[in-house]
């Protein structure tokens, strides 16, 4: 069975691109348009092996989503990668203390993204 990745981003083009890359690499993908939708999907029974989330989103941002995921018994150990434009340390710190596993700095290319996923998800 393929591994499932939950992709959370309010930008459709980003989501399309990430999904396209992931599917090309053999992952199953579940998409959500913001943190709130992601939480609904997770509570609704989605069992991703990995979550990739943007930080800046309407309704519920990435940091709050990460905190929410860490609070869910079923998902507290699921790796979460955050997408961030800021290479600035403060966003990374904020994400890490919220419980993010790692980060992918935008702009990235598909290979970089897959390499980063490889760091947190066993092949």
């Amino acid at each position: 069975m393929g591994k499932t990745v939950l992709v959370v981003d309010d930008s459709v083009s980003m989501r399309q691109m990430v999904t396209f890359t992931l599917k090309g690499a053999g992952f199953d993908v579940v998409e959500a348009g913001d943190g709130q939708e992601a939480v609904e999907k997770l509570n609704g029974g989605a069992k991703p092996n990995l979550v990739i989330t943007d930080l800046n989103m309407p309704n519920m941002d990435g940091i709050s989503l990460i905190k929410a995921i860490r609070g869910m018994a079923a998902h507290k150990f699921t790796p979460v990668l955050m997408l961030t434009t800021e290479s600035a340390a403060d966003k990374k710190k904020e994400g890490q203390s919220a419980g993010a596993t790692g980060w992918i700095v935008k702009p990235f290319n598909p290979d970089q993204m897959l390499a980063t996923i490889g760091k947190v998800l066993p092949a």
Binding site: F77, T78, Q96, G99, K119, V120, L121, A123
Partner: peptide, 16 residues
């Protein structure tokens, strides 16, 4: 100490 709570797996590091 909070390694697991951030979704990290030491085994993954060794694999890499």
């Amino acid at each position: 100490v909070e390694l697991f709570q951030r979704g990290l797996d030491p085994a993954q590091i060794f694999r890499e």
